Amino acid sequence: MARVLASAPGCQLPIGGVCAASAGTGRLRSRTSIDVACGVIMGQNQCSYEEAFNILATASSHRNIKVRVLAESLLEDLSGGTPSTHFKG
């Protein structure tokens, strides 16, 4: 499987069977917003990361929107806004 992905156009390195060039950057950007939103929830509720993520995921499910979209909307209401990433892609 990794060989097939490595030979795909635009793919530079297979990582765990996934092309790093096509999959990595987008996930890292989404993950940054989710992680920061979880940090905000942790601070507000004095809970663990797992509990904060469950709160975010449950709210996302109830609103029928993606976790990333909910996380970014939560962060837009903060003074610093949605965090930027330093990933090149």
Rank of each mutant, 00 (worst) to 15 (best):
P9W: 08
G10I: 02
C11K: 06
C38K: 07
S30D: 11
V4H: 13
A57P: 00
D35W: 05
A20I: 00
H62L: 12
L28T: 12
T85G: 11
I15D: 00
L78Q: 14
K88Y: 08
T32P: 02
P14V: 10
Y49Q: 14
G10A: 07
R29V: 11
S33Q: 04
R27P: 01
V4W: 12
G43S: 12
A59N: 10
Y49G: 06
Q12P: 01
N45S: 10
M1D: 03
I65H: 10
R3L: 11
Q12V: 14
R3D: 11
R63T: 04
P83H: 03
G89E: 09
V67Y: 08
L75Y: 07
R31T: 13
R63C: 06
S30F: 01
L5C: 12
A57F: 06
I15T: 00
I65P: 04
L28F: 12
Q46F: 12
Q46H: 11
I55W: 05
L75Q: 11
G16T: 00
A8Q: 10
L13T: 12
A59T: 04
L5F: 13
S60L: 13
I55P: 01
S79W: 09
F87G: 05
I41S: 05
R63H: 09
R29C: 11
F53S: 04
R29G: 04
G24T: 02
G80N: 08
L74N: 02
C47Y: 05
G10P: 06
L75T: 06
E72V: 02
N54Q: 15
S22L: 11
C19Y: 01
L56A: 01
T82A: 13
T58L: 06
S48A: 08
K66W: 03
A57E: 08
E76N: 12
A6M: 08
A59Y: 07
L70N: 00
M42P: 00
R31H: 15
G16N: 01
A57V: 00
